[in-house]
């Protein structure tokens, strides 16, 4: 990574730019660093940035005891898995239909699906809530996940991936006696594996962090995901001090953050792949 050669004098402009890049990087993670500092110190010393202030895990203990975090975490986990599983199945089928089957009305339908890239579920919260209520889905994992399952983005990505698979592969599989579902399973799904990985990472990150819709659909603590739990916990009127809020916030972001640190390269690649059409 560091390919600066010591023998060549480094131009002053380059040094200036490197300094700028580092400074911006520091500014960008400063909020996290400050929160980490505050969470490890007694409330009175949260903003006393002297190095000899004593460390304490008391804030984490207090934050942990103040809300049903394991329940929230389990709900987030269930929500993310339910949504992703549904998306993978439905988007695969729909992407396959759009990529390889011709039938009347296909183009019009595809435009309708693409329109969902813009008509976001977030905007339709009011009537989506009415629909979820009609279907008896309030306060359920399915209620939080279902509006996102027929993901226009997923359908679009997989259609593109399937279209780039050479038709000869499909014909060869057919000659060997594969049915049309067999072709999907044996030829198209394996060929699109990187796209699946990318889409899965993006989906997990998105739904782990989703807030507004879960807030609306859940009323009971037993079904709330982490984001909703955190928002109630951190609300100013709850009177919890900043050190404990910082500790709770860091606890909530820790799992995804750890995954990100471990899989940083794959993560960024995944986002690249998913964003570039």
């Amino acid at each position: 990574m560091t390919s600066v050669k010591a023998t060549r004098p480094i131009p002053f402009g380059d040094i200036l730019e490197a300094a700028g890049a580092w400074l911006l990087a520091l500014v960008w993670i400063a909020p996290l660093l400050f929160a980490a500092w505050a969470s490890l110190h007694a409330p009175g010393q949260a903003l006393d940035f002297s190095l000899d202030a004593p460390f304490t895990l008391e804030n984490y203990r207090a934050a942990w005891a103040a809300a049903p975090w394991p329940t929230y975490a389990l709900n987030t986990l269930l929500l993310v898995s339910f949504t992703l599983a549904g998306q993978l199945v439905l988007c695969t089928l729909a992407g396959y239909a759009f990529a390889r089957f011709s039938f009347p009305g296909r183009e019009a339908l595809f435009v309708l699906v693409l329109l969902q890239l813009f008509i976001l579920p977030e905007v339709l919260i009011v009537e989506n809530y009415a629909m979820a209520a009609r279907l008896g889905l309030i306060d359920s994992i399915a209620g939080m996940g279902l509006p996102y399952v027929a993901s226009a983005f997923g359908i679009f990505l997989l259609r593109q991936a399937f279209k780039s698979v050479p038709l000869e592969l499909e014909e060869a599989a057919r000659v060997e006696g594969c049915s049309f579902m067999g072709v999907l399973w044996r030829v198209y799904v394996p060929a699109a594996r990187p796209v699946y990985l990318a889409y899965a990472l993006v989906s997990v990150a998105t739904h782990w962090n989703n807030f507004l819709w879960p807030l609306i659909v859940t009323n009971a603590p037993a079904t709330r995901p982490l984001t909703v739990g955190l928002s109630l916990f951190g609300a100013p009127e709850s009177g919890v001090n900043i050190s404990i809020i910082s500790a709770a916030t860091l606890m909530v972001v820790a799992p995804l953050m750890m995954a990100f640190l471990i899989f940083q390269r794959q993560f960024i690649q995944a986002f690249l792949r998913a964003g570039i059409r």
Partner: peptide, 30 residues
């Protein structure tokens, strides 16, 4: 660019993306 510590720089810029907006708000409240 071929900066020293490029991995750290990239990671730092990208980190806020993977935080929930709610968590980001809590950090900024501070």
């Amino acid at each position: 660019r071929h900066l020293p510590l490029r991995g750290f720089v990239r990671g730092a810029y990208f980190t806020p993306t993977i935080l929930p907006m709610i968590a980001a708000a809590n950090l900024w409240l501070f």
